[in-house]
Design a binder for these strands. Structure first.
Lengths: 360, 360
DNA sequence: TTTGTATAATTGTCTATACAAAGTAATTAT
DNA sequence: ATAATTACTTTGTATAGACAATTATACAAA
């Protein structure tokens, strides 16, 4: 029998479930007419009002369409049985640095699970990141990949918390925020910088300038790797050839730093730039000052950006993979697979080009 | 009286309308309890089932919440009075060419109207563009900015039609598709190429090679501009120094073209590359062949990509503005402001750098 | 060929009634 | 004072029956 009168489950609900099963099993197919109310009354022994309640509910749910004078019909298996997943990506600027590569990695991985990616550029400003965060929340995204801005840690935390309040999983990409237990994908910045510094030292360089922004976790780690490598090789750390800029990269400012460093009397032989952009600035300034390259000055960068005509020795960061891993993390959060927060640290490797010369 | 028994309008519907009005006019406020079913029976003279039908409908619509044993309550006036607008952006690859600039322009303009941008890279392939199109449609985007792929016109048309069937406005960015009346944002490719060719001619060049992909509307127009400029200056068009590649840009292939052109006996003095990437490839090949630059060979490109260390004379395309205008067009479509399709042609301008030398 | 009419089938609207289930509030027992 | 009981209110489930509105079909009339 279809209806169990002794069951505590409401009879309209039993009928409703039965009808749904019939549709699901293809007994009533798409566009088919299901039995009339009267027939269902005969079939189940229920009152017509009860039958109607079951049918009405299924109609509201979109399983059925009722047509006056004609009957009740099974609707086309409707749109989107699985909810659309949208992931927000907040980068400093989609035009610069590694952002395009990160975006593409994230996009490709998202596409694999039929997810979509909303693009947000923060210009490294808290206020823009906050604006985007609000919009992402309004769009009820399923997760966010966030590259922290150049603002203070506490402001970056505010943004993360905004998402957390709405139970939206957040993955920090590349940079991290202190005192915040979060999923995080980055590269081995300390180790990478350590290896790169060692490489310079093995090439005979002792006076190695280090120029970086001290507000980003990544560059701070690189600086630590640099210092450790000096120490392990018995080279005295010299603060006078280190530039620690409190703020994000800025072409004009870093050009001045480059000029200052290159004009110093105690001649440096190599520059370790906090990232490739800085390396490029150094190269341009050095060239303008009449230094020949790499004969007069060896330069290494960090990131492996695509400078077509500048053959820069640098540390390649697997940015594309970072995008992939970020989306994977978001995905596992959405599916509630993991508990506790994960930090994924990807390996970077040295790309030896022609910007470093053995120091005699 | 609340209910007009003689009206042809169903009584449950009359009650439903009345209740909705009371809520709207604030007689029943948010979180308020509305009269119980029994009270409404007294008030209206209807049967309880009829009253229930009215209440049930309003519950389904989200106006009311029923609580067993407690009563029926007015819900909070729900979320999102204004719908979120999401715009899809389909570019060949967010990592290359002008895509980042276009994306950023679109993003900034979208942000101004609190819209969001979903990023899609097609790799210039029909199949990927189609995949993204389907996902954008599933996400019910409000509009799409589409850079046609390197596939055939008919395949690109198929994708556009997919959106049109769902009444989703489409704007073609940069490239166009023949025989398709659509909103379109581009630059004056013919005129730009004409001017750039004239510039070369005024610099004394007569043997000017032209190398391009003949599958894109933009580069075809540039080629036409090039030919027209030759003609207007009385220079014989020479097909043997023109490379017309049937397919998208491809580094390996274009390197071979460059080698072939540069090895020819009838020595060319300048190259007009279909876009900056091609110009770069020519530069690299020429350099590897021992040609000095720009003394032995003048090169011009098109796009004004950011090649840090290559001082390329080129035609600057206002790509950022193209992104802005594209979103503006989508916006006016969404608001139903315009009828008929619009073509916006932005002005490009010559950037004179150091890659062109006067030919003696 | 078109238009009108009758009829059957089916869903839509509505009334009247009864008991169940889930809360609240007052009362009673401990 | 606290806990258990009871009474009451309100929505939830269910039955039985009546008539209205809409559609398809067949047949008749213009």
């Amino acid at each position: 029998m279809i209806i169990d009168k002794s069951s505590p489950i409401p009879q309209y609900f039993q009928l409703q479930t039965w009808l749904k099963e019939q549709i699901h099993h293809g007994v009533f197919k798409v566009e088919d007419k299901i039995p009339t109310e009267e027939e269902l009354v005969q079939l189940t022994g229920l009152a017509r009002a009860t039958v109607r309640q079951a049918i009405q509910n299924l109609t509201n749910m979109g399983y059925l369409v009722r047509k006056k004078g004609l009957g009740t019909f099974v609707t086309k298996p409707n749109i989107s049985p699985q909810k659309q997943v949208i992931i927000g990506l907040i980068v400093p600027d989609i035009r610069s640095g590694y952002a395009p590569e990160l975006a593409r990695g994230a996009e490709d991985e998202a596409a694999r699970s039929k997810h979509s990616l909303i693009l947000c550029s923060s210009d490294d400003l808290y206020i823009k990141a906050d604006f985007h965060a609000n919009r992402l929340i309004e769009n009820s995204v399923s997760g966010v990949i966030f590259v922290p801005t150049a603002s203070s840690d506490s402001k970056n935390r505010t943004i993360v918390q905004k998402f957390q309040e709405k139970n939206i999983p957040v993955v920090l990409a590349d940079r991290t925020i202190p005192y915040l237990d979060l999923d995080h994908v980055t590269t081995d910045n300390f180790e990478g910088a350590y290896n790169l510094t060692n490489y310079l030292i093995k090439k005979g360089h002792k006076k190695i300038s280090f120029v970086y922004s001290n507000i980003f976790s990544t560059e701070k780690l690189r600086f630590n790797g640099y210092k450790k490598a000096l120490e392990d090789n018995g080279i005295q750390y010299d603060p006078s050839i280190v530039v620690s800029h409190t703020g994000p990269y800025n072409e004009e400012q870093f050009s001045k730093y480059a000029q200052a460093i290159l004009k110093q009397k105690k001649r440096i032989t190599a520059v370790f730039a906090g990232h490739d952009r800085i390396a490029l600035t150094f190269y341009l300034v050095a060239r303008d000052m009449g230094l020949s390259f790499p004969e007069d000055l060896s330069i290494v960068g960090y990131d492996d950006l695509d400078f077509e005509t500048l053959s820069l020795t640098t540390m390649h960061q697997p940015i594309y993979e970072m995008g992939i891993e970020s989306v994977k993390l978001i995905d596992s959060r959405i599916n509630g697979e993991k508990n506790g927060h994960q930090s994924i640290v990807l390996k970077s490797y040295l790309i030896e080009r022609e910007s470093v010369l053995r120091n005699k």
